[in-house]
Amino acid sequence: MNWIKKHRFGMIVALITIILISLISFTSQGREKVSSIEGLISKAMVPVQKTIFTGSQYVKNFFSSIIEIGTLKETNKVLKEEIKILKQQQVEFEAIKNENERLIKLLNYQKSNPQYDYSIAKIVSIDPEVWFNVFIIDKGSQDGITKNSAVCVSEGLVGKVVEVASGTSKVLAITDTGSMINGVSSRTGDYIRIQGSTGSTLEGFVVPEAKLIPGDIIVTSGLGGIYPENIIIGEVEEVKKKVGMLEKTVVINPAVDFHQLKEVIVFKKK
């Protein structure tokens, strides 16, 4: 009896060991079903574990954001750089989009006026001395452009070519004071002599009998051989009659916004 008392722990341990080993061997080959007691305990623990797990995820995120503070400056720098690049790309994208729209417009113009050869040119520079009235395009004699070719955009007449180099040409805008066009009022059929004037408007001269009113559309007459017929020049803004003058003065608002020009169509004689 004394021996058993002395070694009771050892015996208990041995007994439990045997039980556990048999348990292990029973359960080691994979069980289909979990016993009900186990299931109950697991079930009871699941919400607790879930809560703590989620909680510790928050804690982990918190700590990792603390750890990230050291690298934040670096990350910020990289991101700012990226934003810069993306902004640049966006600007480029916008530009390409606008260009695309303009080109589509020009294309439509070409389709509706097939009697000429066209070539689309880009404005490469604007003569600074005469400000916006003379500009250079990137097509020249190589592309079949000759002097006095008409230049326009889909909205209307822009000007004419005054100098041709092999790769570039100089275009004189209709708003230049040295430019002279013969126009016709599409409603009344009155002929108008149109000159450039100071500012962005055109100045026209008509005979006193002409019945022009503001809002009349002026198109090219085709006389003079430079400009083709029926290209919109602009809209009558004001008709003035000065005392002592033989002609009426007409202020014409050009149809083309000269500040927005990027590409133009050059008419080539066939």
């Binding site: 722990f9 341990v13 439990i16 039980i19 556990l20 080993i21 305990i41």
Partner: peptide, 26 residues
């Protein structure tokens, strides 16, 4: 408890833990 909560096999943690507890106590 370990076996039930995240073990597949019953007793696989229980046996070594118990033996260690016994030996350390001894």
């Amino acid at each position: 408890f370990s076996d039930i909560l995240f073990g597949r096999i019953l007793g696989i943690h229980g046996l070594p833990y118990m033996l260690i507890g016994y030996l350390v106590g001894f």
